[in-house]
Design a protein around this nucleic acid. Structure first.
Lengths: 199, 199, 199, 199
DNA sequence: CATGAATGAGGGTTCATTCAT
DNA sequence: TATGAATGAACCCTCATTCAT
């Protein structure tokens, strides 16, 4: 007796709820029964909406990757960050405020990478990555793709390191260092870098 | 037919061989039987050398981290890398030459993070991370822990991004950008950064 | 193909069937797979109804003890046993008629005693023993708990001895001796015994 | 490097030590490795002296059954119990003082009963039982085999009940009741019983 | 004789999936 | 549609036994 009549809407609602559990425990530690209980449906119902566990998981990742963009946009609009330094600050504050979520994303990306045999459906991951790249690009306006990618690396790496050792790494310090370096990245240096890239 | 070899040496040999399988499939997809077959021993033997699957995996991760650093040391010595820029170059070449390996390490770190109930054995990962940090610190001599951690983030993030989209990111370009930036990191900039940290 | 029958009824049906196997082979020699085959269900089904092997066994023992007493009641009623001597006779006939069963019960009690680490679940056995004690008490009306316990001892000991050497001990003879002694137990003797207990 | 040169003596020494472990944990919970450690030998050595676990266990039971008699005789000689009542008292005191031992014997008898497929080698158990019967017979001199067997039943049943519920049953009380009843068992009553047996 | 590393069948248990209701 | 009992292959791990040393 689903409250929502539309089949696809209901499916998406299930996927969104499912994320909570997958994020917390990882793909292979979540059992179908556990998932069914969390979503307050029977296992049979789950199999009515999703072919199998793999498919459910994949669809969930796809849905969430899409929805992340919306969240990042919200962040931008709310903060009146107009200098690059301020943008960096806001970016890291945003990540800090949703750290657990981003850690989960990283962990789940690894799950996806593993549970789709032999790089079969990695396009989801690529799309996912591009969504984040795009967001960074639009928000920071560094004008240099290499630097943008490197900044994304710093973000990913920082989240990753904090996952393993939260006391040793902090978003604020990382953000501070970046803000100090920033001026040097957009002047003559950048020109040099581009040349180097063409050598 | 008991081997004459030293117990611990044999254990390490098993761990090194085990990596092949874990790297390919991830912790939870590798079964003990499968592992035993790969290592050409019986399951019983595996349990003779390792308390259980967790412990085996954990010891493997630790061993590999240690050996990585040793390899990097050798590589650096061989390449006569005496300027910081050269060191950066050697570092990224080293990573590139073992890219699949480092991707596997990242994936496996996530595995460990997930499969040891409630952060119980996170200290292994922390130790592991510190081994890499130490290596970076010694090799680059940046003299600033924050920058060192950020560099490690760049390395981790780059490996991670290439995992999802290998065509868009390259080690050479990342290395080049870093080499250009480097001078600014060790001079006046650094001074600023330090001040900033104390504000 | 889910059964329509009541969950608990089905559980009891499984327990009763399970006894056949446990009685024959003892707790530790019965494997779950073997048990599943005997009960004509899958191992999964077994674990659907019972948390684990221990719990299944424990519940079985309890159920049987309860049903024994009910049977004894029926038998007594049918045989119009109204004098104590007749009750003794009926009791031993009952035991004789189900000798193999009671031997199995004794063997299984020892099983429980051993296979629940460190006296952890001994309460089940105690409950079980009390069920039998209660039955003896109600049926014989000796009015003296010590004598009742002693009678239970005689029953247990007789079953036990016959298990090891069936030709040397018989229920009929034991019953006869007891019937002869009986008058002396309920008169002046009893008075003496009580005094002795208080000395 | 055994300290004892004679093969059979050493074997017996091992068997006697083994009892400690088997009594405590039961046949099937004792592993060969555990046993080897307790006996301070290697598993290989164990298999040098005993064909397999079953044989070791069986030989142990045989040996101990034999040695029990000696112990019972010691008890007799030490206590100057010349009236039947005193003999009963001494008997129960003896059992009480070695309660754990006798419980173990009962438990192990059940083990033997189970682990020799289909009553194959039960003669050991019969012998064992006869040893105890003999002892009771000689010590009490009741002059009536039926009563002797019943007394043995009481002993066995009491040990058994105390195993399951030590607070409810006591050797002293059982002993007291028996002493009070005793006079009635050796006079006219006995004559009646014998008649009854022949009816 | 003594050792203990090696074996692998088999133990209890889990869980994705199916299907009668 | 929705349910959840039923399935059984496959999981991790144990342990009696062997045999090269």
């Amino acid at each position: 007796m689903p409250k929502i009549v539309n089949h696809d809407d209901y499916r998406e609602e299930l996927l969104r709820k499912a994320f909570q559990l997958f994020a917390r425990k990882g793909y292979s530690k979540v059992t179908i029964r556990e998932l069914a209980k969390e979503l307050e449906v029977s296992t049979g119902t789950l199999y009515h909406y999703f072919e199998n566990k793999d498919v459910l998981f994949e669809q969930m990742v796809k849905l969430l990757a899409t929805e992340d963009v919306a969240q990042l946009n919200v962040m931008e609009r709310r903060s009146f960050a107009h200098t690059p330094e301020r943008v960096i600050e806001v970016l890291f504050r945003f990540i800090e405020s949703k750290e657990f979520y981003f850690q989960s994303v990283i962990l789940m990306v690894c799950d996806v990478y593993r549970y789709n045999e032999e790089g079969h459906k990695l396009s989801v991951l690529k799309d996912c990555l591009n969504i984040y790249r795009e967001a960074i690009s639009q928000h920071l306006n560094l004008g240099n793709p290499e630097l943008e990618k490197m900044l994304l690396s710093i973000v990913i790496g920082t989240i990753f390191q904090r996952m393993l050792d939260p006391l040793e790494v902090s978003y604020v310090q990382t953000s501070d260092v970046l803000q100090k370096i920033y001026p040097f990245l957009t002047t003559g240096l950048l020109f040099e870098v581009k040349k180097a890239g063409n050598e």
